Computed example of a mutant assay.
Amino acid sequence: MRKIFYFILFLNSLLSAQIKAKIVGIKDGDTVVALLENNTQETLRLADVDCPENRQPFGKNAKQFTSSQVFGKNVIFYRISKDRYRRTIAKIFYDNDKYLSGEIIKAGFGWWYYKASKNFNLKDDEIAARNKKLGLWSDKNAVAPWDFRKKKKQHLQ
């Protein structure tokens, strides 16, 4: 039993270790490609945020915002888990501890992903961006990406 406990503790430490990387690709507003120090690439899905899909209104704007913040920059990230597509869900920090997901939400280019996030400060940031009508919040008919994906999936069936 003790060996299992220490093994789980070891795995958790691996997942939460600080990792240095350079962002070499932007797939969309909430997915980037990081070049690790060992010259391997890893696709990172941002924790706490969900951005419009590329085909949605403001999808390209979200991608451009993310690119303007981190493309070509050295970052620090923490692996949180894996998603169903085997991408690493990560918290990315850059430019003296700016939290990328938070910056996206503050600028109005993403929703606080309340289904998977416990960071309630991001909820407040989303409300502030909505009230200021920043980014996608300038569209009073903005559709959350999870609703957009659900409609698309239903349409294909």
Rank of each mutant, 00 (worst) to 15 (best):
M1P: 07
Y6W: 15
F10H: 00
L14M: 14
L14V: 13
I19H: 10
I19Y: 08
V24L: 09
G29T: 05
D30H: 13
V33C: 03
V33K: 13
A34V: 07
A34K: 07
L35H: 06
L36G: 09
N39A: 10
T43R: 12
L44E: 02
L44A: 05
L46E: 05
D48R: 03
D48S: 14
V49K: 02
V49M: 06
D50E: 15
P52R: 03
P52L: 05
E53T: 05
Q56Y: 03
P57R: 02
K60L: 12
A62H: 04
A62F: 06
K63P: 01
T66C: 09
S67M: 06
S68A: 11
V70F: 01
V70H: 00
F71D: 00
G72A: 07
N74C: 00
I76S: 14
I80R: 10
K82W: 13
R87W: 08
K91D: 11
I92F: 06
Y94I: 11
Y94Q: 01
D95G: 09
K98Y: 10
K98P: 03
S101Q: 06
G102E: 11
A107F: 04
G108L: 02
G108P: 01
G110N: 08
W112P: 02
Y113C: 02
Y114Q: 14
S117V: 08
K118T: 14
K118I: 10
L122T: 02
D124N: 13
D125E: 14
E126N: 03
I127L: 09
W137D: 07
K140S: 15
V143D: 01
P145F: 02
P145I: 06
P145Y: 03
K150P: 00
K151W: 11
K151C: 00
K153N: 12
H155N: 14
Q157E: 14
